[in-house]
Design a protein around this nucleic acid. Structure first.
Lengths: 151, 151
DNA sequence: TTTGACCTTGACGTAAAGGGAAGGTTCCAG
DNA sequence: CTGGAACCTTCCCTTTACGTCAAGGTCAAA
C-alpha cells in the first residue's frame, strides 16, 4: 500500500495546529507515534490527519479535556481491536461485542444530543429577541411613514 | 421591590459552582459586585443566579473563555443601557440602536448555529455506525435462528 | 559539500481557571 | 452573650494546554 506522507510542518498547516501542539498531543498519547524518516523526522499519513481532526471536533465542539479525549479514543480503539478478532468469536461473543460497541456509541450520541438541545434552546432565545427587535423597527418605521404622509 | 437574597453558600449550591469560583468570577468582572450584608457577607439575588447560569451556558455549551464571555456580557449590557435611554432618542437613533442590537444577536446566533451544524454532523456519523452495528446483530441472530430451525 | 529550510529534544515560561488553607470576622441559635 | 457554623480576604499552589527559546541534527538542491 503506497502511502503519501507529510512532515510535521505540513501536517500543522493542514490541521491549523502548531508543530508544538502536534508533538504535545503525541506526548499525551492522543496520537500514536507517527512513522519517522531515517533521520528522525516525523511522517504523518492521511489517516493521522483524520485522527487529529477527530480530536479537534471532540475538543472544540464538545469541550472535552485532552484527558477525556484520550479515554474516548482508547474506547474506540478497543472496539476496532475487537473487530480484528471478530471472525474467531462465538456467536454470543459477537453479539456481545457489537452491543458493547453500540453502548459506547450511544454514550457519545447522548452527549452530542444533550449539547444540541441546549444550543437549540439558546438559539430560540436569541431568535425571539431578534424578532422582537425587528418588530420594533417596523413599528417605528411605520410611525415615521404615517407622519410623513399626514404632514 | 422586595428581594429574596441568598448567601454565597446557597448560591454555590444552586449553580453547582464552588464559592471560590463565584468570588473568582466576581473578581474577573463576570458578575457585578453583589450586594452585601452590613458585615460584608455577599448577597445574591435571583437575577444574579440567572446571570451565573447564563455564563455557564456560554462556557459549557459554546466553550468560550471567561474573557470572551465578559466581552459578550458587556455587549449585552451596552444594549440594555441603550434601552434605558431609548425614549429620548430620535427616530434614527432608535432604529440604529435596534439594528445594532440585532447585529449583536445575529453574531451570537451565527456561532450557535455553526456549532449545532457541526454537532449534527457528528451525530449523524455515530448514528450511521450504530445502525451498521444493529444490522450486524440482526444478521447474526437470524443466522442463529435458521440454524436452530434446521437442526 | 555547503547552504538554508526543516526538524529534533529539552528545558523553562505562562495564561487561564480555579483549589486550598491560614487567620480573622460575622451571624444567629441557644 | 457566647459557641460554632458560615463567611471574609489574602496569598500561594496546581493543572491544563500549550508557547518559546536554545543547541543541535537532517534533508535536498546546487
Amino acid at each position: 500500500m503506497e502511502q503519501r506522507y507529510m512532515q510535521i510542518g505540513q501536517a500543522a498547516e493542514r490541521t491549523g495546529l502548531t508543530q508544538r501542539t502536534l508533538r504535545f498531543y503525541e506526548e499525551k498519547r492522543l496520537l500514536n507515534p507517527p512513522t519517522r524518516m531515517e533521520g528522525g523526522f516525523r511522517l504523518y499519513s492521511e489517516e493521522d490527519i483524520q485522527r487529529i481532526e477527530h480530536i479537534l471536533q471532540l475538543k472544540q465542539n464538545l469541550g472535552f479535556s485532552l484527558a477525556d479525549i484520550r479515554e474516548m479514543l482508547e474506547a474506540e480503539e478497543a472496539i476496532s481491536a475487537l473487530k480484528a478478532q471478530f471472525r474467531e468469536f462465538s456467536t454470543e461473543q459477537k453479539i456481545e461485542s457489537l452491543e458493547n460497541a453500540t453502548r459506547v456509541i450511544e454514550g457519545q450520541m447522548g452527549l452530542i444530543e444533550r449539547k444540541i438541545d441546549q444550543l437549540s434552546s439558546m438559539r430560540d432565545f436569541w431568535q425571539q429577541k431578534r424578532a422582537k427587535y425587528n418588530q420594533r423597527v417596523k413599528e417605528i418605521q411605520d410611525e415615521q411613514t404615517s407622519i410623513n404622509v399626514t404632514s
